[in-house]
Design a protein around this nucleic acid. Structure first.
Lengths: 355, 355
DNA sequence: TTGTATGCGTTATCAG
DNA sequence: CTGATAACGCATACAA
């Protein structure tokens, strides 16, 4: 009792003398050690499980920690031990409807393990992305998760030589590096097959930004499905897009203006599908009565679009979780052998059999 | 030349001997100081502009920094100086279409000033939010930005006593605290007025989650506009929602099922408006021919919904930027006097004059 | 098993 | 103006 009181009093004093306001309530490991009657190193060992200690002291320290409300200082820990318990996450646009889910998955998984994510946006700009990575390294993150990104494979491998790296959207192999690649080819093929199965044979394809490998894969999938079905691929049915709603709208307009006949559209992502839907709507064409429409990614808004969009489910939340778990494994020194779920079509109301 | 080479060689050696892989390429301030022929303190002073130093030494140090490629270690800096150059950002859901923009604004502004944001999601849970804030404090962030949040005003004020705080979505006054409140009342009023001006007098209102102050404000705005126009407020026209698409859909269905007559709907946010639009679509009611629809927030997808949604523009990106700037001012010790843009209706295609 | 001493890279506090 | 020297809070060889 008395002990407790005096501890509090000491704390008060410390607060009063400390200039920096935000250092209030600071309880150091040393204080804990003294309160428990052990040395700081022992307290540290108990905190980290670095070595075996007697049950007695362990108990005393645990009790002292709880009583004083000790919270380890990650900053000091980072300086002394080299581990900051934080991992950098390189994304392209933190406000993207697509990546949002992944970020959430990462945060959930990481924070459950005591790690904190440090998000930075590369803005689809290789130079900026490099700067971001440099910044993360200077902040001494314990590892880096790169979502797609524009950084070269070589640079990533080099990075992985010094720091655990998890990268999505590519297939890479290097020590300290795990890559998680979603099967975009299969996704594109399944989406096209769905349309084919519905009797459509004039299927337009709106490509994604061709600088992205996944856009090319989805395109390959489209072509493969057509070939499998013995349907000739008409180049006039393939229109370029940039993964934006605007480009989807423009694509449909160009298709319509050129009077290319088609009964279905497969857009390489949902955002373009939404733009396409609006384009069709403006020309009095109804989805799915006049034109069937399939998207890709299954973003959150796809469920409530008009009509609800049939699309390839891209498990972004899981992607984030799995990427985070892979990083955790890497950090723990375990060999990571995680894999992504297979593509899966979510059938909603934007597709129907050809009339 | 020779100098340069030997420096590189020394670096190589350091790399080879250092066990921790991620410490590669480390150049310390001490090394810079030695290379420049000054003491570490002087080098530090030059780096931070903490004191006046002779032009000669300044030059020598700058040159050494550039030559060795020195990058200050934020971790060590945080330990020694108490400043981590990072600010915590408490959001509710990092994947929310609404908050995404704000996060981006914050990141842009903060990183331009050399600060890094540390994002955490409160998940609309007061307890969890408190834990998040504790975590941020333990990580020694220099300040905290709270986007709306469930934390009590009192707790926030207490927090602000120790740490600069910027909070959005409320009007609070306390030292070290700046609050940025969007005028939701005016927004609700303007949205309703728009509908009124179009000749609608049976205007349904889908409320937001009433635990949010902004939802209540929007409701008040709706009521005020009605009153101004001399239109009686019919309680049957007000249906509860929870800010989700699903609840917007349910709201419309309940309205239709009860056969409450209406020619327009004002949804307290865009997500519910989308749900409502789908509900109307399912019952063969067309927007805006049969029913005019107004949302609130102007999320990114509102531009490409079918039809493009008329909505109150909520400047989230600016909100983020302004919140970040306010934090920067607070950090610099300047009195922050920033304010948010006024509500503004974006008229698109979901509203038209009553037939 | 445990304590002591030292270091992590900077900033801050003193003297000069 | 500048340079030693002491923190900052913790982890870790090393010694016992």
């Amino acid at each position: 009792m008395n002990n407790k009181t005096s501890a509090v009093v000491r704390l008060r004093k410390a607060r009063a003398t400390t200039g920096a306001a935000h250092r209030e309530g600071k309880v150091t490991l040393e204080m804990v050690a003294r309160a428990a009657g052990v040395s700081p190193s022992t307290a540290s060992r108990i905190l980290n499980g670095t070595a075996v200690v007697s049950e007695l002291k362990r108990h005393a320290v645990d009790e002292a920690i709880a009583r004083l409300g000790f919270v380890p200082n990650p900053v000091a820990r980072g300086l002394a031990g080299g581990r900051t318990l934080s991992v950098g996450v390189v994304t392209q646009a933190i406000d993207s409807p697509f990546y949002g889910g992944a970020l959430r998955g990462i945060e959930d998984e990481l924070s459950a393990a005591g790690y904190s994510p440090l998000f930075v946006s590369g803005q689809w700009n290789a130079v900026h992305e490099t700067r971001c990575i440099e910044m993360l390294r200077s902040r001494r993150v314990d590892g880096i998760i790169v979502l797609t990104g524009r950084t070269s494979d070589a640079a990533l491998k080099a990075l992985a030589a010094n720091l655990p790296v998890v990268v999505t959207g590519r297939s890479l192999c290097a020590p300290g590096l795990v890559s998680l690649n979603f099967d975009n080819f299969e996704g594109g093929r399944l989406a096209t097959r769905h349309l084919l199965g519905l009797g459509h044979c004039r299927i337009a394809f709106i490509t994604g930004d061709t600088r992205h490998p996944d856009a090319k894969e989805r395109h390959r999938g489209y072509l493969a499905a057509l070939k499998e079905a013995g349907v000739a691929a008409d180049p006039a049915l393939v229109v370029p897009g940039q993964y934006t709603e605007e480009s989807g709208l423009a694509a449909v307009e160009s298709l319509l203006d050129k009077r290319v006949p088609f009964s279905a559209i497969f857009a390489a992502n949902d955002q373009m599908a939404f733009g396409a839907a609006l384009g069709l709507h403006r020309r009095q064409l109804r989805v799915p009565y006049d034109v069937s429409l399939v998207g890709f990614d299954d973003v959150a808004t796809a469920t409530y679009s008009i009509p609800p969009l049939t699309t390839m489910h891209h498990p972004v939340l899981e992607l984030g979780q799995i990427a985070a778990r892979a990083m955790l494994q890497l950090l723990a020194g375990e060999p990571a052998t995680l894999t992504l779920p297979a593509p899966r079509l979510v059938r909603r109301e934007s597709t129907q059999a050809r009339r």
